[in-house]
Design a binder for these strands. Structure first.
Length: 271
DNA sequence: AGAGGTACCTGGCAGC
DNA sequence: TGCTGCCAGGTACCTC
């Protein structure tokens, strides 16, 4: 489900309500997520104060003085703040009960998400340590992107979804960014000229930024930290629109599976 | 090193 | 109504 805009939307929604709060209790109802939820979380967090809620790639980092929670939403996860006494849903596997009477709950039907603990710097955690630059930072730029793609024969769609190159671009925004840049998803990454790399870098930044401003994309079940859907779905140009006419030319949008993932593009204006 | 496939899980939906 | 098969926003890990 969530790509960078959805995770950032979640972060912005919950951070103001979490920062400075103390954790009263942790309840783990289903520890079997992507990796087991650490059994000692409850003891570690009881009474601890949340200092900051940050995001790196699609991971949320909830910082405490003595360590950090690392949360990933996987394909179907969402975090939501609600009252303690609000009934817990069937897929709300982990909850942090806060001192102010609210609960932060992780809902994740498919359980591809993760809740991990690290005593040290979460950015140095093995899952995060070798990730590429944040797409909305200056560390993600045309010059470096062009250099990194030289000699690469994988598809450009696979390349921009590879977290070692840049983070945060998932299946929806990959199709959208390639459409905006006029680049065919099957093109070899190493075959893009420097100006086209620059156009793609700009398209990725624009699409992600616009999606954040709309609160993310809700296709089926994404909601922000307060249970509200995102509104970027209506701004999608190609994703999920196979058979419709291209917004830019007279072509028809196609759906083709690339690397086991549905890909949408206009074969006429994406080259 | 890089490319490609598999696996993890549940729910919703189309088609019969 | 109920069954089957397919699809889904991610990514670590395996083999070649």
């Amino acid at each position: 489900m969530p790509e960078l805009p959805e995770v950032e939307t979640t972060r912005r929604g919950i951070a103001p309500h979490l920062i400075g709060q103390r954790v009263r209790e942790v309840r783990v109802h289903q520890p079997r997520l992507r990796w087991p939820v650490p059994g000692e979380l409850a003891e570690r967090l009881r009474g601890a104060r949340i200092l900051e809620v940050e995001r790196r790639a699609k991971y949320l980092l909830i910082r405490f003085a003595h360590g950090s929670l690392i949360v990933h939403l996987g394909m179907s996860g969402s975090l939501r703040l609600s009252a303690h006494e609000h009934p817990r849903g069937a897929h709300e596997h982990v909850e942090l009960l806060l001192a102010d009477g609210r609960a932060l709950r992780l809902n994740d039907p498919r359980r591809f998400g993760a809740v991990l603990w690290t005593d040290g710097d979460p950015l140095a955690h093995p899952l995060l340590a070798s990730l590429g630059p944040e797409p909305l930072s200056e560390a993600f730029n045309a010059e470096d992107f062009h250099r990194a793609s030289r000699g690469r024969r994988c598809t450009i769609k696979g390349f921009i979804m590879d977290g070692r190159q840049l983070v945060g671009v998932g299946n929806i925004y990959a199709s959208e960014a390639l459409f905006h840049a006029g680049i065919h998803p099957l093109r070899a990454a190493g075959s893009l000229s420097r100006p086209r790399c620059a156009a793609l870098v700009e398209a990725i930044k624009r699409v992600l930024q616009a999606a954040i401003e709309q609160g993310g994309t809700t296709l089926r079940d994404f909601t922000d930290g307060h249970g509200q859907p995102g509104y970027f779905a209506q701004a999608l140009q190609v994703y999920g629109r196979a058979g419709e006419s291209c917004p830019r030319c007279a072509g028809t949008i196609r759906n083709k599976t690339i690397a086991q993932r549905a890909s949408y593009y206009c074969p006429r204006c994406q080259r």
